[in-house]
Design a protein around this nucleic acid. Structure first.
Lengths: 109, 109
DNA sequence: ATAACTTATCGTAATATTGCAATAACAAAA
DNA sequence: TTTTGTTATTGCAATATTACGATAAGTTAT
């Protein structure tokens, strides 16, 4: 016991959960916000920006990349990272869908 | 080591991360989607809906509630749960803001 | 009061995450 | 080739999460 029962949920549910999980850490939110501000940057810029060691930042970048929230392209000896817009749009659509379904409904709370 | 360095990030960053973290599990996504569909329900309904034991569901509901994603009101001997729309809107606004800032920008990737 | 119903909490085992020092891996420059 | 610059990986300790049986705690019905 202890492991998430991924197989009991739909692919879509697992996908949204994976993306949300990647955003479930303030350092990764900070990275996303920094990338939003500067549009693109290399890992070292983020290391300078955040109060975390380089291996830790690298690990956070890896998780954001695995979740499809950012992408990186090799730029000489460095790697240029930027936000994957499609995934942000996917989240927007997801929450918009919930909002629309909640409108004009009364409930107990 | 091992604990998240919450104090190094802004309140807003921690808030978004906390909400995202609560959504970072397929069971909690499934609960949110079920609540979207039925508008309101009691814990027992979710236990019947999901392949998880009652204490596990109760724990997931607690996390969603702590993150401000759902609210519950006592209804006789049961508790009626429903979605906190404001928090969903907060997420929508957050991702919309990122999207708008990314538009009309070219980058390396 | 007691039984039935509903949800929360406790305790615990299994698993996952976080953070970083040390180090590897790789490209570009000297 | 050696050095420099950049990022990824490994290994490990600390902490957090997940799941559930057992049980407590509350309300309603009998």
């Amino acid at each position: 016991m202890g492991a998430t029962k991924t197989e009991h949920f739909t692919d879509k549910q697992n996908e949204i959960a994976t993306i949300a999980k990647a955003l479930g850490h303030p350092a990764r939110i900070a990275i996303l916000e920094y990338l939003t501000k500067v549009n693109e940057c290399i890992c070292g810029d983020i290391v300078n920006e955040l109060p975390l060691a380089q291996p830790t930042v690298s690990q956070h970048l890896k998780e954001l990349k695995n979740a499809g929230l950012i992408k990186g392209s090799i730029e000489g000896s460095a790697i240029c990272y930027c936000i994957e817009e499609k995934t942000i749009e996917k989240l927007q659509d997801y929450f918009a869908h919930i909002s629309i379904n909640l409108e004009q409904k009364n409930n107990c709370c």
